[in-house]
Design a protein around this nucleic acid. Structure first.
Length: 593
DNA sequence: GCCGTTTTCGGCCCGACTGTTTTCAGTCG
C-alpha cells in the first residue's frame, strides 16, 4: 500500500461518513489525514512498521488514525471502510463529483429514489422523478443533467505552464481595457502558489471602478459559458474548458482577499485559528477586531498584525511555514535571478531540435555563465542516443566553441542512462573525462521498489555521477512517480556528494516539492535544469525555481547559483578523495516548510 | 477524530452564490 492508496481510503471514508451525516469534524479529521498522508515524502508503510509513535507525530494523525494506518499497511484494507461501503453503495461516491450534488442531496437521492450510481441517476432524470424531490427545482435538475454528461470526460488539471498561458492572455486583456480603473490585478490560487498543476484560475481585481472591469471580463472573447455572475464575483468557463473566477474587492480589502484566495485552504485555516487566538477575525475583507478593520490593504499588513513575517505564496501549504514566520526563521527562497546556468539540455545530436551553437547562443542571451549539454546516451535509441565515439566528437565541438567564445562556458556533459542493477550506459573512463555527468532512468520505471531504489542508490554513489536527473521519472497527468525508497536515495546522494536535479520541464517538475524538501533535511544539494530540447525551452528554468521555492530551498542549496569553479570543486570529481559523512535521519516534514 | 498558555472536554474557519424558498439550506471555494 502506497501513501496515495492510504490517502484514497481516508478520503472515501470521509465521503461515506458525510453522506451518512456523521459529525462534520470527524469527516474533516479524515480529510486532513488523507492530505497529510498524500503529502508525506516517505512511504508510510516504513514508518508504520516501527509502531504508532512515528505516525502520531504527523499533523492530524492521532492514536486512532495511526492504528488505522497500521491496519491498512498490514492487511491492505480498512474494516471501517468496508463497513461503510456496505451501508452506502460505492457508486454513490461518483455522484459527489457532479456539480450541484453534495452529501445532503446525494443522501436524499439515495433515501427517496434508491439512486446508487450515475446510471440510476440518469434513469431517474429521464423519468422525471428527481424533479419531485423537495429542493430539486428545474435549474438544479438541469445543472445535474449537464454535470452527468461532463462527468464522463476526465477532468484534468492544467499544467502550471498551460495555466500560465491562459492567465497571461486574460490579464493582458483586462489591463488593456482598464483605463486606470485597475489598481491591483492578480491571479491567486494554486497558480500563485506555483503548484505544478492548477485546477482553475482565481483572478482578483481592485480599483476605482471594478464593476466596469467585471463587465469587460464578461466580454472576454475566449469565454464559452458564463456560469455565475454577481456583484463581486463572476465565474466563466473558457472555450478550452478552464474555469475562471473573477472577484472584485475594495482597495482596503485587497491584501486580505489576495491572501484568502491564494490559499492554500489549510494555510488559511491555520491563519484564522491564529487570529482567533488573538481575539481577531480574519476573512477575505480584512483582519477585524470586533467590527473595526485593523489590516487588509496589503498581505504584509495582515501578516504583520498577526505578528508573522510575510510568507511567500509558494510556502503556504500548512507544512510548518506559519511557525517559521512566527520565529522569523522563514527561508530566504532562491530566485530566478540567482541562477547562473542550466544543467540539462539536449541538441540535434540526440532528440533536441537545435544545434549546440543555437542552444549556447540562447543561453548567452539569458545572461548565463555556463550550461551543460546533456544529450542522451546510446541506450535511449529512440532519441538517437550517443555512443562513446559520437560523444567524443561532440566534446571536441564543445572545446572548439569554448575556445572561440567568451562569457559562457559550455560543459562537456551527458545524460547517461542508468541500466539494470545501477550500471551506467557509458564506460567509466569516458565519464571521468566529462565536466559534469547526469545519470537518469528512462526504462523500467514500473519495476518494483527495491529494484529502482538499488539502481538510483548505486548511480548516486558512482564515482563519476554528479547528479541524478528527473529522479522520480513522473510525467504529470501521464505517469506517476516510480516506486522508490527516496529516503535511501537522498541519503546516498547526500553521503556521496551527488546532486539531485530539480527538472523544470513543465511535463516533469521533478523532484516533487515535498521530496525535495525532505531531501534537503539530509544535506542533499540540488541542480536546477530545464531539460530543454530547443532554445525556447530554456525559459522553463522558472518552473525549476518554482519547485525549489515550494521546497523551501535557498540559493545556498543549489549549485548553479554559484560561479562554475566554486561548485565544481565541491563535486566528487573535483576532489581527490571525499569523505561521506553520515547524516541524521529524517524526522517529520513539518519544520522544512 | 484531533488537539491542548482555553490541556482530557469542548471546541473545531468563513462567506458568496444559487435555487428554491418566503427565510434558508446546500454547495462551493
Amino acid at each position: 500500500m502506497q501513501n496515495p492508496d492510504i490517502a484514497r481510503l481516508f478520503d472515501e471514508v470521509a465521503d461515506l461518513l458525510e453522506i451518512q451525516s456523521a459529525n462534520p469534524f470527524r469527516v474533516r479529521a479524515y480529510r486532513t489525514a488523507a492530505r497529510t498522508v498524500r503529502d508525506f515524502p516517505e512511504p508510510l508503510s516504513d514508518v508504520a512498521q516501527q509502531g504508532t509513535r512515528g505516525l502520531t507525530e504527523l499533523p492530524g494523525i492521532g492514536e486512532d488514525l495511526a492504528g488505522k494506518i497500521r491496519t491498512i499497511v498490514k492487511t491492505g484494507s480498512l474494516p471501517l471502510h468496508r463497513q461503510l461501503v456496505r451501508k452506502v453503495p460505492s457508486g454513490v461516491l461518483d455522484l459527489l463529483r457532479i456539480p450541484g450534488l453534495g452529501p445532503k442531496r446525494v443522501k436524499l437521492l439515495l433515501a427517496k429514489l434508491k439512486i446508487r450510481s450515475a446510471a440510476d441517476l440518469r434513469r431517474a432524470l429521464a423519468g422525471g422523478r428527481v424533479r419531485t424531490l423537495k429542493g430539486f427545482g428545474p435549474k438544479l435538475v438541469a445543472k445535474i443533467r449537464a454535470g452527468l454528461g461532463q462527468a464522463e470526460r476526465v477532468e484534468r488539471r492544467l499544467l502550471l505552464h498551460e495555466a500560465e498561458a491562459y492567465a497571461t492572455a486574460l490579464l493582458k486583456y483586462l489591463r488593456q481595457g482598464g483605463h486606470g480603473d485597475i489598481a491591483g490585478l492578480a491571479v491567486a490560487g494554486s497558480y500563485r502558489r506555483r503548484k505544478e498543476t492548477v485546477g482553475d484560475l482565481d483572478v482578483l481585481v481592485t480599483g476605482r471602478d471594478t464593476q466596469r472591469v467585471m463587465r469587460r471580463f464578461l466580454t472576454y472573447p475566449d469565454i464559452a459559458e458564463v456560469v455565475a455572475r454577481g456583484a463581486t464575483r463572476a465565474t466563466v468557463k473558457l472555450t478550452g474548458g478552464v474555469q475562471v473566477d473573477l472577484r472584485a474587492v475594495a482597495p482596503a480589502a485587497y491584501g486580505a482577499a489576495l491572501l484568502y484566495f491564494t490559499g492554500s485552504k489549510a494555510h488559511n485555516i491555520e491563519l484564522r485559528t491564529l487570529a482567533q487566538d488573538r481575539h481577531l477575525k480574519l476573512n477575505e475583507y480584512g483582519l477585524f477586531s470586533g467590527t473595526r478593520r485593523v489590516a487588509g490593504r496589503t498581505e504584509e499588513a495582515v501578516y504583520a498584525r498577526l505578528r508573522l513575517d510575510w510568507i511567500p505564496p509558494e510556502l503556504r501549504e500548512a507544512r510548518g511555514e506559519i511557525a517559521l514566520a512566527q520565529a522569523h526563521r522563514l527561508p530566504s527562497l532562491v530566485t530566478l535571478a540567482a541562477v547562473r546556468g542550466d544543467l540539462q539540455m539536449h541538441t540535434l545530436a540526440s532528440d533536441g531540435r537545435a544545434t549546440l551553437p543555437e542552444m549556447a547562443d540562447a543561453a548567452r542571451a539569458l545572461g548565463y555563465d555556463y550550461i551543460a549539454i546533456t544529450d542522451h546516451s546510446r541506450r535511449v535509441t529512440m532519441a538517437h542516443g550517443l555512443d562513446p565515439a559520437r560523444l567524443r566528437d561532440q566534446w571536441q565541438e564543445i572545446d572548439a566553441w569554448n575556445a572561440a567564445h567568451r562569457g559562457l562556458t559550455v560543459l562537456k556533459s551527458v545524460e547517461v542512462d542508468i541500466l539494470e542493477g545501477g550500471a551506467l550506459d557509458l564506460p567509466d573512463e569516458l565519464l571521468a573525462e566529462a565536466d559534469y555527468v547526469v545519470a537518469s532512468l528512462h526504462y523500467g520505471l514500473d519495476r518494483p521498489e527495491r529494484v529502482i531504489t538499488r539502481q538510483l542508490v548505486t548511480a548516486a554513489r558512482h564515482r563519476w555521477v554528479d547528479a541524478i536527473g528527473h529522479p522520480t521519472g513522473r510525467l504529470l497527468g501521464t505517469r506517476p512517480p516510480c516506486r522508490c525508497d527516496f529516503e535511501a536515495v537522498a541519503r546516498a546522494a547526500a553521503e556521496a556528494g551527488c546532486l539531485l536535479e530539480l527538472n523544470g520541464h513543465p511535463d516533469r517538475m521533478d523532484l516533487p516539492d515535498t521530496l525535495a524538501a525532505a531531501a534537503k533535511t539530509y544535506g542533499v544539494r540540488f541542480a536546477l535544469a530545464t531539460d530543454s530540447h530547443q532554445p525556447a525551452h530554456l525559459s522553463f528554468m522558472r518552473y525549476a525555481v518554482d519547485l525549489a521555492r515550494r521546497a523551501g530551498l535557498e540559493a545556498g542549496d543549489i549549485v548553479n547559483t554559484l560561479p562554475l569553479a566554486q561548485w565544481r570543486a565541491a563535486l566528487k570529481r573535483g576532489k581527490r578523495t571525499w569523505n561521506p559523512t553520515r547524516l541524521p535521519r529524517l524526522r517529520a516534514l513539518q519544520t522544512t516548510a
